[in-house]
Design a protein around this nucleic acid. Structure first.
Lengths: 233, 233
DNA sequence: GTGACATAAACGTCGTACTTAATGGCTTCG
DNA sequence: CGAAGCCATTAAGTACGACGTTTATGTCAC
């Protein structure tokens, strides 16, 4: 899951991003580029490129004569998948997971409604296939297989909505689902009710029933929120 | 509105980002760093920093021996406010505006519902204030003043929701509203119905009526979508 | 025709030197 | 004594040149 160090730059970026997202550097703290260069044993050039990227994510702010100052969390670009990953790896994963799940509960019902209207036959077919896959892996500790189907399922719905803003949220949803499975001790098999809802949702989309698709997705979201309340109160 | 050229880096980034977002460089086209350095009359150092930032936005991909290749639009980080600004300045502004407005129609009702539950008295007060400001500037070609109040209003609702993912969408909404006012020839005064809805929404949030707040926000969103259909079909 | 190998093109990294601007202290004047 | 303005310092911004690394591509031999 970690970046394969395809370059020095990537390594430093990931390390610094993780540190800042984890709150190891409180807002207002200044980081000096030479210092970072020595710390990571790279040239200042590399550090500067990293700083520029972090700056574009609004994690830091670079000013002359003063240094690179860490910005408060309210300024982060929290929709950047990389930032999301960094934050989910950190300490306040539960709170982050909740925020993202609430976001899902707002987006996905509308996306499902649109998908019921716009999905192509191919998308409907793959949706059904994934739903059946979820059924098949819903018992017997096949959590990883279930997760893969779940992610694919929601990604298809978001793509089929025909709205690019929704479609690009697929990565976020994937992070949330993966985080839920991997970090929240999910010893038990998935909730059978959720599995059923997915099957019915696939059918609703295929039938073009927008209202039903929206309602079913809302139920799935409610279940996910409830699950969070139970497991991480 | 344009960046105040606080650095060479900023200028080049903005220029290149605009070009790519506008589709001047089709996906797969390769840009050479030395070539860009000559073109913008800056050093390769600056170009490389710019490339790194564009890479973090998934607008380009840098590979050895081949160059910097432009990535297809599906890969772009379309939630990055900077990318949004670049795209709104480009050719397919109407389509972009529509995508974003649909996104708003999904998010803002839920955010308003949460805001009705969580808004502080101060937020309620400022919300009412902004609604009154919208009323005051809704007639007589005071479009800029109206826009400022409108942006502030929606930003407060998103912040008051208490969900950081919603809150961070304030910038996106601001871009949409600004784009609507500035680019869609908005010669006429705002729709009086929309103004009324904002006033009633402020009241619903103050009263803590979540259902009503959600319903009113949905109406506002419907109006915005309808406006798009009329002005840019 | 297929394989390995040599080549070169482009980015990746580094080090150094110089420029710019914000900061804080110091000086000077009121 | 205090305030305003000048100046030295500092850390980032920029430039340039050199070398390293990867990898697409073409060539040569088999």
């Amino acid at each position: 899951m970690t970046t394969p160090a395809q370059g020095l730059h990537t390594h430093v970026l990931d390390a610094l991003g993780l540190e800042i997202a984890a709150g190891e550097h409180p807002p207002g703290q200044v980081l000096r580029t030479d210092e970072l260069a020595r710390r990571f044993d790279v040239s200042r050039t590399v550090v500067r490129e990293v700083i520029r990227v972090l700056e574009s994510m609004h994690l830091v702010e670079s000013r002359r004569r003063v240094g690179v100052t860490v910005r408060p969390a309210e300024a982060w670009n929290v929709y950047d998948p990389q930032v999301i990953r960094w934050r989910l790896a950190g300490a306040d994963r539960p709170r982050q997971l909740r925020s993202l799940t609430v976001l899902r509960s707002a987006i996905e019902p509308v996306a499902a409604s649109l998908a019921a209207r716009n999905a192509t036959p191919e998308q409907c077919a793959e949706l059904t296939e994934r739903a059946l896959g979820m059924v098949a892996t819903s018992r017997g500790q096949q959590l990883e297989g279930y997760l893969a189907h779940d992610i694919a399922f929601h990604r298809i719905v978001l793509n089929a909505s025909g709205n690019e803003m929704f479609a690009r949220l697929g990565d976020v949803v994937a992070e949330v689902l993966a985080g839920r499975t991997h970090h929240q001790v999910m010893f038990e098999d998935p909730d059978p009710a959720a599995v059923t809802l997915h099957v019915r949702l696939a059918e609703a989309v295929r039938a073009g029933d927008a209202a039903d698709a929206e309602r079913l997705t809302k139920e799935i979201a409610v279940g996910a929120l409830h699950e969070l309340d139970v497991l991480a109160p």
